[in-house]
Design a protein around this nucleic acid. Structure first.
Length: 707
RNA sequence: GGCGAGGUAGCUCAGUUGGUUAGAGCACAGGAUUCAUAACCCUGAGGUCUGGAGUUCAAAUCUCCAUCUCGCUACCA
């Protein structure tokens, strides 16, 4: 494999609306950091870019929540997130931000170029508009009842209660969060990226070129998207928070956040180049640059489909690989900040690293465990017990213990100096351990090149294990007792300890990408400079000079105590319970003020237009290929008609036959799943989202009018 | 419902183009040892490879059906 001339490594831009948790860390930032540290140890030309994603509607929303401005929100979270990464040893070459003028300029120019080349289309559509606030409403600014779970606090893009992705049109009784009034539809023009034009390009690039070297989940997901047919995707929005669309007549419009965010990688590179007096251009334009995006699986479509099309159209290079990770769960459930079921990086830093008995070693402990359970091929699970086991059982017992016993013995039996090597006494064990170092180096290198960080780290730990085995066979502490009787005793000890020390130096090099703080501490113990950690030194048994005196032993890690684990588990439960109470209180509040704000007043004539009738369900069956739809045959006395209703999740078809219900009888017919629905069944819904039929208390004749 | 990825020892995961008694690490049990953070080292037990059918001399591996988990997507007047 030819070594690329230079590398550009990106990690997904964290969204600056709140703290980020360890799932994010394990998914993108940690693997990226390991890879970058390895490349740098190889003395490759590499730039590692990241930054805060600060646009999009969720930022102003969060501002409203916290009672402040959007600018204040990003100014609050950007530095916190940046510092969190630093504390955990994630060493970006630049951590930029998309609110920076350089990014605005870069993204606007990107858009203008595509627009000028005719690579974008415009389309006019109807969007929700708030007449009071005189503005179009972004998805997030529309609230309503979730059609899926009945939560009446659902946003236009997602219901936070059930997690369902929504579009504003799906919301029942949509209401503007700005004015509290029902929005109207108004037409607006937007720019679209016609992905459909580029299906062949994507198919050639992904399926033909990368189906072997990309992860199966990534290729599978892409194939699924491409085969399903790509649609033009809006790249602009009606919003005032973001990058202004650089076109006359586009006032009040900004670039859609997903369009501007990935361009953030480019502007971050530019800023890095300015800071370091370099040229950014080859990193994005020279074919000999290897571009790798580290992301979580939720980002696959953006980094493998949309952004590559943008890059392609703008003449840039394409990513060589996009090693997306799956998700990391926590103690049996999905991680969720809003549900309190997560471990924020900030929390871990405060509770473990910044404690008296903490320190950087605890940052490495987290890095170690997260890498050992990295969700590289499937979702994985973080448990506090697992964290304790991994740290105590492998990091402490195998790795750190080997270093410690080596140091202690070396001071006891070799005066704290690197002992000489006696060639004539070298035996097969000595040769085997030397070979093992070379083998492990080769394995780790290969695994890292393939983005298999979990396996690579395991190999390093395993080398420490081999070291323990080697020392056990050699038993220098026993040999020491024979110094009076065996003339070769000291020489044997020297050989063993020399090997253990050289092995320790190799372990420092190999563990460095994974546990940078630990590697540094090992350098301190060995009294060597960081330069020793360069990858080309791995495999060598000449890293420490004979006669060089080393520092006194010092523990690399402390053990994780049972009480600490119990405390974390209790804390987690408490957080979740607290959030739950908050959420319930919130929904209670909304209940007391009315679950939905009252709709605007109407006159009697408006009401009289609605023809409500009592009907009896005489047949009910599930609509095929639909999870939520029931097909009902309703008797209205004068006729029977088919009505579809999205209640399949709440009722069994056989249970509702014979029920009397209230029907909107003069509603315009509507086709769903190929079946025409002639009317609508009225349902009442309680705070818990449970549905109830609205019906007369006693059975009356079908078709009876309601007024 | 469609698509994608998974389902292998109690736990976390490997299993290359189908080929001898299915592997590793934790955890567990027994032994040995004391240089080391009750650490290390050795040995052992533990799996009808989600279920079923098929192709084959031979299936964890290929095909089909079922089932469960995760993600994307459709459906909600």
């Amino acid at each position: 494999m030819k070594t690329p001339k230079r590398y550009l490594i990106t990690a997904a831009l964290p969204y600056a609306n709140g703290l980020k948790h360890i799932g994010h860390l394990a998914g993108a930032y940690l693997p990226a950091d390991i890879y970058v540290r390895y490349l740098k140890a190889q003395k490759r030309d590499v730039v590692f870019v990241c930054g805060s994603d600060e646009h999009g509607t969720a930022i102003p929303i969060q501002a409203t929540k916290e009672g402040t401005t959007a600018q204040a929100i990003i100014d609050k979270y950007h530095p916190i997130i940046e510092q969190n990464f630093k504390d955990l040893g994630i060493a970006f070459d630049i951590y930029h931000r998309t609110s920076d003028p350089l990014h605005h300029e870069t993204a606007a120019a990107f858009f203008s170029n595509l627009e000028a080349k005719g690579d974008l289309e415009t389309k006019t559509t109807e969007q929700y508009f708030d007449e009071t606030a005189n503005t179009f409403l972004a998805d997030r600014y529309i609230k309503g009842t979730c059609p899926s779970c009945g939560n009446n606090e659902a946003y236009g893009d997602q219901c936070e209660k059930c997690g369902k992705t929504l579009s504003p049109e799906e919301l029942i009784n949509p209401v503007s969060t700005l004015s509290g009034k029902a929005p109207i539809k108004k037409s607006t023009t937007h720019w679209y990226l016609p992905l459909n034009r580029h299906e062949d390009f994507l198919r050639d690039w992904i399926i033909k070129e990368h189906s072997d070297d990309w992860r199966p989940a990534v290729v599978g997901q892409c194939k699924s998207w491409i085969d399903g047919g790509l649609q033009p995707r809006a790249v602009t929005r009606d919003l005032d928070w973001g990058i202004k669309v650089p076109i006359k007549g586009a006032e009040g419009k900004v670039l859609y956040v997903w369009f501007d965010a990935p361009i953030g990688y480019i502007s971050a590179t530019k800023q890095w180049a300015i800071n370091n007096n370099k040229d950014w251009s080859p990193y994005w334009n020279d074919k000999e640059t290897k571009l790798v995006h580290f992301i979580g699986k939720d980002n696959i479509v953006f980094h493998c489909i949309i952004f590559p099309v943008m890059l392609h159209l703008n003449g840039h290079i394409l990513p060589e690989n996009v090693p997306a990770n799956e998700f990391m769960n926590l103690e049996g459930d999905k991680m969720s900040t809003s549900k309190g079921w997560s471990i924020e990086m900030e929390d871990y830093i405060n509770k473990w690293i910044k404690k008296e008995n903490g320190g950087e070693a605890l940052a490495d402990c987290l890095r170690f465990y997260l890498t050992s359970i990295a969700p590289e091929s499937k979702d994985s699970e973080f448990t506090w017990k697992g964290f304790q086991d991994a740290v105590n059982g492998e990091l402490v017992s195998i790795f750190a213990n080997f270093i410690n016993r080596t140091w202690v013995l070396m001071h006891k039996l070799c005066n704290g100096k690197v002992p000489p090597i006696h060639q004539d006494l070298l035996d097969s064990e000595d040769l085997a351990i030397m070979q093992a170092v070379k083998d492990t180096t080769a394995k780790v290198t290969e695994l890292l090149e393939q983005y298999k960080f979990r396996d690579a780290q395991f190999e390093v730990i395993n080398l420490a294990r081999l070291g323990n085995q080697y020392m056990q066979k050699k038993e220098p502490w026993i040999v020491a007792k024979q110094i009076g009787t065996d003339p070769h005793a000291q020489a044997k000890i020297d050989n063993c300890m020399h090997a253990c020390l050289q092995l320790s130096a190799n372990l420092a090099i190999l563990i460095h990408p994974f546990l940078p703080f630990t590697a540094k501490k090992m350098c301190h113990l060995m009294k060597v400079v960081d330069k020793m950690l360069e990858w080309e030194n791995a495999g060598s048994f000449n890293l420490l000079k004979v006669g060089y005196s080393l520092r006194a032993p010092e523990l690399l890690f402390r053990k994780i105590e049972d009480e600490e684990i119990a405390a974390e588990l209790a804390q987690l439960q408490a957080n979740a319970a607290a959030k739950k109470t908050t959420m319930e209180n919130t929904s209670n509040e909304t209940e007391s003020t009315g679950p939905n704000p009252l709709k605007p007043e109407i006159v009697f004539d408006d009401f009289a237009k609605i023809d409500l009738r009592v009907g009896t369900i005489i047949e009910a069956k599930k609509v095929e290929k639909a999870d939520k739809l029931l097909e009902l045959l309703v008797d209205l006395g004068f006729e029977q008609r088919t009505i579809l209703s999205g209640i399949a999740m709440h009722f069994n078809p056989e249970d509702i036959v014979g029920k009397q219900v209230t029907i909107v009888a003069n509603l315009a017919p509507r086709k769903m799943r190929g079946i025409e629905s002639k009317g609508m069944i009225l349902m009442a819904e309680d705070a818990a989202g449970k549905l109830y039929f609205v019906n007369p208390t006693e059975g009356i004749a079908p078709g009876s009018a309601i007024s």
